[in-house]
Amino acid sequence: MVSIFSVYKFILHGIMKLVGVRPQTVEIEPGTIMNFWVSSHIPNKIENTPKKSKPAVVFLHGFAMDGIFTWQLQVLSLAKNYAVYAPDFLFFGGSITDKLDRSPEFQAECVAKGLRKMGVERCTLVGLSYGGMVGFKMAELYPNLVEYIVATCSVLALTRSISDASLERLGFKCWPDYLLPDSVKGVRNMFEIAAYKFPHLPDWIYKDCLEVMFGNRKEKEELLEALVVDDKNFAIADFPQVVVLELVSK
């Protein structure tokens, strides 16, 4: 039986290419490759008119899906008027590394280096959940690159106290139990918890999700482990950027 997600992925990628958004593979360093979905730059057709570069918007995805799956509607809406970049984090989509570093700092470093290699000098970051935390690290480490940051369903960092309180409220012992389910029931619970009034779907759709969405499980477990920091090791950075933090709760 053909996976509905494989079919949808094929259709989605085709639509993106029709509107000028295409995948671009960037070698960050030997052994580390990141995939970015990038909107093409439409040349100015008016002769003798200085070409103005479009403002760059970088969409950073959460822990469930890759960049273009997560931000497809936003990318389609903004691609005409903005230079849009939707990277796949390492071990998601088409991004991979042979390095052992699993920290959000390393993800931030790789995204920043990839953007630099593509000629991005200043950008606005839009981060969801895990992407928001990586985005805050980018804003901290690369203030000359990140002009603004918008984060939703996220925190500055996942401290031990925030992590323990969140897991207790959600009813899980650890983050992989929630974000890396190994059963149809687990996938259903993940979506129903993460989304407000998630629609009822048949089990075969969740089974499809289970089969195609949770590859690189070992590496992703390590990413989640590296995400949690001790409270004593966390200090709020002095962000020079304008930060908009949107908290959404059920």
Rank of each mutant, 00 (worst) to 15 (best):
T70P: 10
Q74R: 12
V75Q: 08
V75M: 10
L78F: 15
A79D: 03
N81L: 11
N81E: 12
D88P: 13
F89Q: 12
F91N: 12
F92Y: 15
G93M: 10
R102V: 10
E105F: 14
Q107N: 14
A112L: 11
G114E: 08
K117P: 06
V126E: 02
G127Y: 05
L128H: 10
L128M: 07
S129P: 05
Y130Q: 03
M133W: 04
M133E: 06
F136L: 09
K137P: 09
M138R: 06
A139N: 06
A139Y: 04
E140H: 13
L141V: 08
P143V: 11
V146G: 08
A151Q: 08
S154D: 07
L158E: 08
D164G: 10
A165L: 07
L167W: 01
E168C: 06
R169G: 02
R169N: 03
R169C: 07
L170Q: 03
G171S: 04
C174F: 01
W175K: 03
P176R: 02
D177V: 02
Y178V: 00
P181S: 01
P181K: 05
D182M: 00
D182H: 04
K185D: 05
R188N: 00
N189A: 01
M190L: 13
F191K: 03
A194S: 07
A194R: 05
A194D: 01
A194P: 02
L201P: 02
W204H: 08
Y206M: 01
D208P: 01
D208M: 00
